[in-house]
């Protein structure tokens, strides 16, 4: 009985310590009244993309964001938070990314017909490499990696001389904007990188950045 009491006391102290640590951390942060993940929308989605790529693959293959809808991801990630001992903030970020991606899938799959075929994006401004790098390092980096070679199985090597980037801009932009699954790949790239509030111009900026960074122009 004494042992049980000791154990329970120890557990309570551990929990109290964790609560105290978090409370102290929050109290030193500006804007401490914000929700941990929802307070910084885009950054949470970007963090979530990385956390999804990093943590979910610790045990199993990454499952495509389009496998479940947003509500189901909400429950599923909560389950995984417990099973994988994820800090709540990390699980919340993963939710933001997966739920956003699921919504983007829904949004683009029911989009007007003109989005369905390869579109012309001549109306977009020339890509802004600096801004493209910013977007890439926030969102695309989770799967494609900083070096463009891919961080998870099945993601194509963007730096390959005969790789994806030799395709024309309009085709690549269509795929990036609508989402795309390569032949043989287990998983689709979500529309807009899983971030429905990014714009088509953002995607053009990302493409410009990738072309400059990896030195690959469209093939003829």
């Amino acid at each position: 009985m004494k042992k049980l009491l000791l154990i329970l006391t120890g557990s309570a102290l551990l929990a109290a310590g964790a609560v105290l640590t978090q409370t102290m951390a929050q109290s030193t942060e500006p804007g401490a009244n914000k929700a941990p993940a929802a307070s910084d929308g885009g950054a949470a989605a970007a963090r979530g993309a990385k956390a999804w790529a990093n943590h979910c693959s610790r045990c199993h293959n990454l499952r495509s964001p389009s496998e479940l809808n947003a509500e189901l991801w909400d429950v599923s990630v909560q389950h995984m938070r417990v099973r994988a001992n994820l800090p709540g903030s990390v699980a919340d970020d993963i939710k933001v990314f997966l739920m956003s991606s699921a919504m983007a899938e829904k949004q683009y799959s029911s989009a007007p017909p003109q989005r369905a075929a390869t579109a012309s994006f001549a109306y977009l401004a020339p890509g802004d490499v600096v801004h493209g790098k910013e977007i890439f390092s926030q969102t695309c980096i989770a799967c494609h990696g900083a070096d463009g070679k891919g961080t998870i199985p099945g993601v194509p090597d963007l730096t390959a001389a005969d790789g994806r980037l030799v395709n024309p801009d309009d085709l690549l932009l269509t795929n990036i904007i609508k989402g795309y699954q390569s032949e043989g790949s287990l998983m689709a790239m979500p529309p807009m990188g899983g971030n429905p509030d990014l714009t088509e111009q953002d995607m053009a900026d990302v493409l410009a950045y990738m072309r400059k960074e990896y030195g690959i122009a469209p093939g003829k």
């Binding site: 929308g41 885009g42 989605a45 970007a46 979530g48 699980a91 109306y123 899983g194 509030d197």
Partner: peptide, 28 residues
């Protein structure tokens, strides 16, 4: 809106203020 020249597009700092993928962790 989508075709506006880049010069008129919001600066990146402004873009940061627009919630990107701002689905709440709470619930939809």
């Amino acid at each position: 809106l989508k075709s506006q020249p880049l010069a008129q597009a919001p600066q990146s700092s402004d873009k940061q203020n627009v919630p990107m993928g701002g689905v709440p962790y709470q619930r939809v």
